[in-house]
Amino acid sequence: MKKRMVKTMMILLIFMLGALTLTGCGEKAASAEDAYGKLKERGYVIVGLDDTFAPMGFRDENQELVGFDVDLAKAVFERVGLEVKFQPIDWSMKETELNSGNIDLIWNGYTITEERKEKVAFTKPYLENRQVIVVLGDSKINSKKDLEGKKVAVQNGSSSYDAVNKEPDLVASFAGGEPIGFDTNNEAFMDLEAGRSDAVVADEILARYYIQERGIDKYKVLGDDFGREEYGIGLRKKDVELLEKIEGALDDMKKDNTSSQISEKWFGENIVK
């Protein structure tokens, strides 16, 4: 009797383990699905952005989200047939927000790097950029070497932060032995203006726009920089069809000059790749 009960229990246990395994596989398969079909059913896509990153995506005097990437995303998804909603996020947590499903895209001057490619899929690059060093107009800092012993500000989690830290010997020479991190580029520039920082490293596209708005004579952009880079749109790696739809729309917008018109609106010239 006992042997029969033990045998029965073993059969039940094997059955339960098999069911759990099948369930787990089913969940894994479901989680690996491309999101495009669900987005079509839902009717909209959520773009994550840093809403202080002018001129790519930022708030105007009426607190409306505007910018080059905002206009570009709206034009793309009008062609794809989806409404686009913009979700401000903590930029240092952007990949986590994407892969946890809180947003569907990272699109806001998002630099393509090998490290980020491990976490997300990128579209083809659509803009070029470089990491420039900005100081006040009367500063005696004229080169990278002059940053030794100085306070250098960057945005946390940004490509600027990564670019600066690729030169560890130089970083070790900064005051405090590391760059000063801020949640936004605006805060970094305000710290520079207040004289608490000596220099800011930032995306040239943002820096040039910021300088133009605040006064060209107030700042100086050094000839040295921390490298050139390209902007792309970040997606979850499983979202292959969504990526194809976006790239198809971008290609069409180059052909009919929609992207060049948006570029001229924000930069005064066509800088789209």
Rank of each mutant, 00 (worst) to 15 (best):
L206E: 09
L170E: 12
K218E: 12
P179F: 00
D198Q: 10
R214G: 00
G181E: 15
K218I: 01
G223N: 08
N165G: 05
Y219W: 11
D203R: 01
A202S: 14
P179N: 03
A207L: 02
E178V: 01
N185C: 00
L192T: 10
D224W: 09
E213G: 03
Y219N: 03
Y219A: 09
I180P: 09
D191G: 00
S160L: 00
T184C: 05
V201K: 00
N185L: 01
G177K: 08
E193A: 14
V201D: 10
D203N: 09
R228C: 08
A172G: 12
Y161D: 15
S197W: 03
G215H: 07
Q212A: 14
N185W: 11
A202Q: 10
G176Q: 07
F189S: 07
G195C: 03
D217M: 01
R228Y: 13
A163V: 02
D217K: 05
Y210V: 02
V201Y: 10
V171F: 06
S159T: 07
R214I: 00
Y161Q: 05
K218T: 04
V164I: 10
L206M: 11
V164T: 10
E193S: 13
G177I: 06
E187C: 00
S173K: 15
F189I: 02
I216F: 01
E213P: 00
A207H: 03
D224E: 11
N165H: 08
I216Y: 08
S197E: 13
P179G: 01
D191S: 06
E213T: 06
A172Q: 15
F226L: 11
E204D: 11
M190H: 15
Y161G: 04
V200M: 11
F182W: 11
L170C: 08
A199D: 09
Y161W: 07
I211E: 04
N165K: 04
G177N: 10
K220T: 07
G176L: 07
